[in-house]
Every structure is written in structure tokens, then in C-alpha cells.
Design a protein around this nucleic acid. Sequence first.
DNA 1: TATTGTTATACTCTATAACTATA
DNA 2: TATAGTTATAGAGTATAACAATA
Lengths: 151, 151
Amino acid sequence: MNENTKNAGQAPRPTARSLPIALLRTREHVMEPIRPLLAKIGVTEQKWRILRTVAESGPMEQTAIAREACLLLPSLTRILQAMENDGLVTRREDDKDRRRSIVEITAAGRKLIDLHQPASIAVYDTLEQKFGRQKLDMLLDLLEEVQEIEL
Amino acid sequence: MNENTKNAGQAPRPTARSLPIALLRTREHVMEPIRPLLAKIGVTEQKWRILRTVAESGPMEQTAIAREACLLLPSLTRILQAMENDGLVTRREDDKDRRRSIVEITAAGRKLIDLHQPASIAVYDTLEQKFGRQKLDMLLDLLEEVQEIEL
DNA sequence: TATTGTTATACTCTATAACTATA
DNA sequence: TATAGTTATAGAGTATAACAATA
């Protein structure tokens, strides 16, 4: 029995056991209470990820932001232009390699993160309380580990 | 020390430990090898989730599909119209409640799922091999459990 | 020649509201 | 009155290719 015959006509996994679908459903579930709060401070999910990424890593180039924030470069270009207009980030040419542009968060950008912190913490606290800190840590560990696997 | 002062100025979690971001990054990582294969058989991710959902549950109404496939009803309406045109699903009025429309997968729709099965199984096998079946099951268990938590 | 980022384009999805039909 | 689904519309993101500037 070779690899092909082994799997021939095999039924698909239940959607709850499909990793991509399970990841999406879980994400939607967690985002549900967060989304209206992001809307209230006037940032999209994409902008939020960019803010968090740049706040965490300090000045960084766009290719790196795109990777960390899960965005394509053309999308990022447009979004960063808007964020620069709104004064949330700055962009400057890299001195050593002038193809690169270095993006940095501004004080206003950091303030936006601070503004959203209580809401973010509230959801996290509820999760710790109802799910357990240990299981939450384990889940985050497993997620990080999957990201390291070459598929 | 009240709730506000307790969390005031607290630093955000690292993005790798932010559950929404971790879920998205992991999903993107897993989808990377799958996406071109879906493109090859001509379905978007959304159409794919609809197909899987309807194949799994049998004839079902759109509100239920929207919930399971993580789509808004207006998006679903449009996508289902296209899928009906392509002969992947059928829609009919519910006899008992004529507001409802019942969606069912067609033979062509099932064929599309079969067509993609080997690719899907390949990714899953790699995951089992490099990550471990036990950990994969644990991850899926944890994901399901988080979806049950009221946030 | 390869890489970084931008622009252009067509398509798709999101989000909200207003609407129709039915219950 | 409430619910299921549709339509309309504006905004945003996706995906690909073509392009400019720099390495």
C-alpha cells in the first residue's frame, strides 16, 4: 500500500480538526470583543498589528514589518502612508542602504497602544481566569512551535 | 490600588504572546503551502471554508454557514451566488420557513474537495511527523476549548 | 542581476445600513 | 416586532505585475 492508495478517497477531517479553520474560528472568537474597541480608537486590525510590531521591535524596515504583521508589501505601503499622515509612525531612508526605508513608531502611536491596553488586558485576564494561565501559555507555546515548522 | 492604577503603563505583551497575533501568524504559516493549491483548483479561502462546512453538516441555512465559515451574511450571499453559478452548491427555500434558504453541496462541490484532499493530507502528515500527532491533537483541543469561552 | 519599495489594476472581502419577505 | 436573507455602498485588503531606485 503506497502513499497514494493509502489516502485515496479518505474523508476530510471535521472542520473543527482542520488546523487552518480552527485557527481562524478561534481568532474570530477572541477578536469579537476586541474589534469594537479598536474601531473606537480608529484603527483597523492591520494598523494595530503594525503598531504592535513596530513598538516591539523599534525602527525596522518594511519587509520585516510585512512578515511580522502578516501583510503584503503593497498593502503595507498604502497603510503606512495613511499611518504616517495620521502621525502614528515616521519613515526615513536608511543611511547605509537607500533602498530601505526605516519605520518608527511615534509618541502618538504609543499613546494609541496605551489607550487600548486596558481592553486588551481585560480579555487576557478573562482568558486566564476561565481557561487557565497554564493552558494559555501552553497554547501560545504550541502556536510558536508550529510557526517554526517547515511545511 | 484600583483597577486603573494597577494596569497603568503596563507594557504590552510581546506580539508572539498576543493570542490574536499568534493565531494569525500560525494560520498564515500553515496556509502558505496550501494557498497556491486552492488557487490552482480555482477557489478562494472563503469558498473553501463554505464547501467544507456544507459538506460536513449537510443541507444548512446561511446564518449557520456564516457562523461556521467566519463570514458575514452579506459576503456569504454574494459568494454563494457565485458558487451556485459555478454549480458547487444549490440553494432552495425552506418548506417550513420560507425566509430561510437551505444550501447544499453538489457532486461537483464534493469533487473539488476530493481534488484538494491529497494536498491537505500532505500538509497534515508533515505536521504530524515534525510536530507530533499528540501535540497537534492537543493544540486542536485547546483551540476548540478557547472557542467555548465566553469573553 | 537582485533587492526594496512603490504604483497600478482588478478582484474580493468587510462593515454598515436599508430593504424585502416571512414569521 | 423580530428574523432570514438580499441589496447597496463605501472602504479596505489581496494578489499580481510592472516599475524605479539602489545595491
